[in-house]
Design a binder for these strands. Sequence first.
DNA 1: TGGACGATCCCCT
DNA 2: GGGGATCGTCCAT
Length: 196
Amino acid sequence: VKLPRSFYLRSALHVAPDLLGRILVKRSTRLLLRGRIVEVEAYLPGDPASHAFRGRTARNDVMFWEGGHLYVYFTYGMHFCANVVTGSEGKGSAVLIRAVEPLEGIDLMRRNRSRGDLPARDLCNGPAKLCQAFGIGRTENGTDLCGPAIWIDEGDPPARHLIARSSRIGIRTGTEHRWRFYIKDSHFITPGKPSR
DNA sequence: TGGACGATCCCCT
DNA sequence: GGGGATCGTCCAT
């Protein structure tokens, strides 16, 4: 069952942990790519680490759309990362999907990653890796997650005691906040280290 | 108009 | 554990 619009119209701090255990789905040409979300980060209004911190621009425009859209950004001259926009129109808040556990379409994911030899655990254990594996790029920016192309299924959320949190990864500011959430016993989370 | 800087990844030692 | 790849974006000059 596809998560409804109302799921996304909440604070990113509520949506982020609630996304764990949900299933990211992308309809490819004739098959489905599916992955269980195991690691996310919240980016809030007024958050200096957020792309939206310095106001609305052409690049981050989608982040200010109504919750339930996909904000895809390009970084380091070669990578894409995907976020779930949260809250009402104009909020400028989102949840970065950092890692998913591959469930379906794994052969295609391997081909998309240009590596036939990668173990499943290394296909989507990073925000740019999962975008490459799922074929998410510039054209997917602004996709409505309540539409037919990319969506998130209810899945099977973990018990609360299986959810861990830490500071976020790869940022220089806002490191005092523990806004990274992940499934404690998952083998499919990022190898990178939190910022503090 | 230019330059510093990424919400990263991969390969090297 | 460290550095290079690679380029769009933003802000300061």
